[in-house]
């Protein structure tokens, strides 16, 4: 798996306490401590074959004190939020939500896997909400591919034209009327929650 062993102790403990801060926001989040290591989550996951560390392995690494390796893995970015693991876990762990917590931690600490700028998509998405109140699909796709895989822009352009012809792609964003409300809510929520 190519997992490095060089996690320096202070960073690990800092990451660990930051992780628990994020987990506190999940109802029953503490249940991650009760993992049986049975592997049901990995078996239920439709994309675990494409992960470098399986969901079960994530918890094992966490216990072994290797959070940095978790944050550098593709796993947390490849989860498609299908919740198969969550509904099957015999210990009642909200695995999907726990992976979200790890994503948030990775973004907060700016620790990412090499060459997988998936977080760029997340960032572009939330930026749209702040700017318009709604998602702007064309802008989101353009921005994301421009930043990550510019070569995809051309092949996607043809598909975009087809959708546009059918009225299924907006060429300009739709700004909601009371955008200030959304912005005020975001600002206040970020202050109360500390961005967690």
């Amino acid at each position: 798996m190519g997992i490095s062993q060089s996690v320096s102790p202070p960073l690990e403990s800092e990451l660990r306490s930051a992780f628990w801060d994020h987990v506190q926001m999940i109802p029953d989040g503490h249940k991650v401590k009760t993992c049986l290591q049975c592997g049901t989550c990995s078996g239920a996951c439709p994309v675990s074959h494409a992960m470098d560390i399986t969901p079960r392995g994530i918890v094992a690494l966490f216990r072994a004190g290797m959070i940095e390796d978790i944050l550098k893995s593709r796993t947390i970015w490849i989860c498609a939020s299908c919740y198969s693991c969550t509904v099957r876990c015999p210990a009642g762990i909200r695995v999907t939500d726990t992976l979200y917590a790890l994503k948030r931690l990775a973004m907060e600490k700016k620790i990412y896997p090499d060459k997988f700028p998936v977080y760029a998509l997340s960032k572009a998405f939330t930026r749209n909400i702040r700017k318009y109140g709604r998602n702007f699909e064309l802008g989101l796709g353009f921005h994301y591919f421009l930043k990550t895989k510019p070569s995809k822009l051309m092949s996607n352009a043809k598909f975009g034209m087809g959708m546009m012809k059918r009225g299924r792609l907006a060429t300009r964003p739709h700004k909601i009327k009371n955008l200030w409300e959304v912005r005020a809510i975001i600002e206040r929520a970020e202050k109360i929650g500390g961005g967690k």
């Binding site: 994020h22 926001m25 939020s81 948030r104 997340s122 929520a189 970020e190 929650g193 967690k196």
Partner: peptide, 15 residues
Amino acid sequence: NCCGATMYMSQDTLT
């Protein structure tokens, strides 16, 4: 407004 989808949920829970 946009519900935030999984994208927001994975960034900032309370928001």
